[in-house]
Amino acid sequence: MNKDNDFRQIEALLSGRIKQPSPRFEEALRQIPAQGNSSKQVTSWTGFLKIAGIAAAVSLIVWTGVDLNLSSEVPSAETILQSDPDLLTLFSLSNDLDMADTLLSEDNLLALDYLTSMP
């Protein structure tokens, strides 16, 4: 195939590859085999991560002694987030998971089809 000079530059641009996927991607990729093997559990890997995230949040609340009473003495979410970087990270993770869940909803249906069709 003849390659003119103009197209050589375009080819060079096209041949570029991403340097490194995000940590979010790497973590989700690691979860796929574990999720794929749980044939009895019809929950997507994002669902699994959400459950794990909620469990971690509950543990963190218990561990840090945050009072869950809905009285006026309960610190505001903003105060808790400012004083606890771990919770801030968890909130960010939760946002990422919400986005991933929405984006993968179509795939969840396919995964559901696959899992329910297994003998």
Partner: peptide
């Protein structure tokens, strides 16, 4: 793009 690559990976595994 990352999400789509993850979907492909999960389909390959499935």
């Amino acid at each position: 793009s990352e999400d789509m690559a993850l979907i492909v990976a999960s389909r390959v595994y499935a």
